[in-house]
């Protein structure tokens, strides 16, 4: 057994410290992300067939190869759900980021009054859990209970339903994004504004020509958050579903996966669709993250 000198021992423990610190995160990640992911991957290559008796009480698990993936990709319902997610996603991302930016800029103008109150009331919806927010909006939409013109506007109409769903998501997420942008605005050095004002810029010009360009990293970050949230759209349409005939059980991809797995008892197809969606989400996030990094890099260069 070799004895380590005190210095070496300290260095040794210093090497271990970072590992110790990340260990809990790594363990949780392995247990709750990697392990279920691998399990889903295994399930997606299996199929179950029943045998024995009229109710087929015996189930055999078989290797299905790529059958489940072929089935998922050739299912018109899957592509239709993807399309609906895209429509809602475009509306949600555009409106959320746009409104958050607008509110942040308004709150940051020198003439704004009651900013604390306004900031809090714009942020508050973010604190309301998604399902509760959706139920609340459901009551507002339904003709018999609607105080916002549900008798005149059919909120669950063929086209309207996309905006109906997007609205709930936007209402819930504008506040958070507004805070991100507002905080970024407050951290900008005030000298820039003074310089702009001395050059004769109006508040509007300062907002459009000075603040928005400097906010680019924050805006990009908010876009990334919102795109990721749009890919995971589930709560809003699923909670609104029983209120009308407008939303089917496979309205968006995650609802289709849920229905396949827990209603239709077809866990293998659900696993295959999940894998496809996960891969697609990873690609989108990587591309989006790279774009965000590009924005941050450019902003950093601008500072020099």
């Amino acid at each position: 057994m070799t004895t380590l000198s005190p210095v070496a021992r300290r260095r040794h423990s210093r090497h271990l410290l970072p590992y110790g610190l990340v260990l809990p995160a790594v363990v949780l990640f392995l247990l709750f992300v990697v392990a279920p992911g691998i399990y889903a991957l295994i399930l997606s290559f299996e199929s179950r067939k029943v045998t024995g008796g009229l109710l087929g009480s015996t189930t055999t698990v078989m290797f299905a190869g790529l059958d489940n993936y072929v089935g998922a990709l050739s299912d018109g319902g899957f592509w239709a759900s993807l399309g609906r997610m895209l429509v809602v996603g475009i509306v949600t991302v555009g409106c959320t980021v746009g409104l958050a930016l607008l509110f942040a800029l308004l709150l940051d103008t020198p003439r704004a009054r009651l900013t604390r109150f306004a900031r809090l009331s714009i942020f508050l919806p973010y604190a309301v859990p998604g399902v509760i927010a959706t139920l609340l909006w459901g009551f507002l939409y339904l003709p018999a209970t609607s105080p916002i013109g549900g008798r005149v506007i059919n909120y669950f109409g063929v086209t309207e339903v996309y905006f109906t769903v997007a609205n709930v998501a936007i209402w819930g997420s504008v506040g958070f994004n507004m805070i991100v942008m507002y905080t970024a605005l407050r951290s900008l050095p005030p000298e820039i504004y003074e310089a702009a004002r001395l050059d004769g810029a109006s508040d509007l010009q300062i907002a459009v020509r000075v603040k928005v360009p400097l906010l680019r990293p924050a805006i990009a970050m908010c876009c990334l958050f919102t795109v990721l949230a749009a890919l995971q759209l589930f709560n809003e349409p699923n909670t609104l579903r029983p209120l009308s005939n407008a939303i089917s059980s496979d309205w968006v991809p995650l609802m289709k996966i849920y229905t396949d797995a827990f209603v239709n008892a077809d866990i293998s197809s659900a696993a295959a669709t999940s894998t496809l969606i996960t891969v697609a989400a990873l690609v989108v996030s990587l591309v989006a993250a790279r774009m965000v990094q590009g924005q941050v890099g450019r902003a950093g260069k601008g500072d020099d």
């Binding site: 063929v158 005939n245 239709n264």
Partner: peptide
Amino acid sequence: GPNVTVTFSSYTDAFGKALQF
């Protein structure tokens, strides 16, 4: 039937769609 859940979820989707469209 042994897969009545499939039949039922298909009913809600198909008849919901028929009423909607």
